[in-house]
C-alpha cells in the first residue's frame, strides 16, 4: 500500500510523519522499527523525535520532541519558558496550568506532540509590553503569594475565568481556582486578587 494514499492533503500527521523520517535523519533505523502492524492501520511517529509547531503566546515556535516529552518539559527545556512550574508532575497540583486552545490544561499531563498546531498561552504571554496583566497586578497588590511557585497556575486559571465571566461571584472565583493548590495557604488573598482584577478590568473597559 502506498503511504501517500493514506494522507489526504496536508494533514498535520502527514507533516509529522514526513519530518519524523527525514529531518531527524534516522529513516533507515526507524523504518525497520516501523514494520509494526500499526503502520497498516494508521500513521505512526516516533520513537524518534518529530518536529512540531506550537503557537506560543502568539508566536509560531518550531521544535523537535520525542513523542514522550510533555508539553511542560518542551516549554521549559526547549523554549526556556519556565513560568509554568513543574511541581508534582502528575496532574495533582495545578502549578503547570496554562491555556491551550482557550481552555486551561495541565501541561505536565499532556504530550507536547498533542499540542502540535495549538494555541498555547503561558504566564509569559500575559503582559502587554511592560504592562502586567490586571490579574498579575492584583496578585502583587493583594500579596496573593508567598513562595510563588503555584502563582502562575493560579493566574492562568483566574485569567481563563475572567474571560468567560467578567463579574464572578466569590463562589465562582473559588471554584475556578479549585484545581490549583497553594501550600503556603494564601487562598484568601488569591480570591481577593481575582475579585479586584475583575473590578479593575471592568473599569479599564
Amino acid at each position: 500500500m502506498s503511504e501517500e494514499k493514506k494522507h489526504d492533503g496536508l494533514s498535520r500527521r502527514s507533516f509529522l510523519k514526513g519530518v519524523g523520517g527525514g529531518v531527524v535523519g534516522t529513516a533507515v533505523l526507524t523504518s525497520s522499527r516501523r514494520t509494526s502492524a500499526a503502520e497498516q492501520y494508521g500513521d505512526v511517529v516516533g520513537p524518534d523525535a518529530v518536529e512540531i509547531t506550537l503557537n506560543v503566546n502568539g508566536q509560531k515556535r518550531t521544535l523537535t520532541v520525542d513523542p514522550r516529552v510533555t508539553l511542560l518539559d518542551a516549554l521549559r527545556d526547549q523554549l526556556s519558558l519556565t513560568g509554568s512550574k513543574r511541581v508534582c508532575n502528575k496532574g495533582q497540583c495545578g502549578a503547570c496550568t496554562l491555556i491551550c486552545n482557550g481552555r486551561t490544561v495541565l501541561a505536565c499531563s499532556m504530550l507536547a506532540i498533542d499540542a502540535d498546531g495549538a494555541d498555547v498561552e503561558t504566564i509569559e504571554g500575559l503582559k502587554t509590553g511592560d504592562q502586567l496583566h490586571p490579574v498579575q497586578e492584583e496578585f502583587i497588590k493583594n500579596d496573593a503569594l508567598q513562595c510563588g511557585f503555584c502563582t502562575p497556575g493560579f493566574i492562568m486559571s483566574s485569567v481563563a475565568l475572567l474571560r468567560k465571566n467578567p463579574s464572578p461571584s466569590m463562589e465562582e472565583i473559588k471554584y475556578a481556582v479549585s484545581g490549583n493548590l497553594c501550600r503556603c495557604g494564601t487562598y484568601p488573598h488569591v480570591f481577593k486578587a481575582v475579585h479586584d482584577a475583575a473590578q479593575a478590568m471592568k473599569k479599564g473597559g
Binding site: K6, R13, R33, R34, S36, A38, Y41, G42, D43, V44, V45, G46, P47, D66, P67, R68, L111, I113
Partner: peptide, 11 residues
Amino acid sequence: MKPFQYVYPKD
C-alpha cells in the same frame, strides 16, 4: 519514560 511509537489510527 520508555520511548514509544505514537499511532494515529485512520479510523
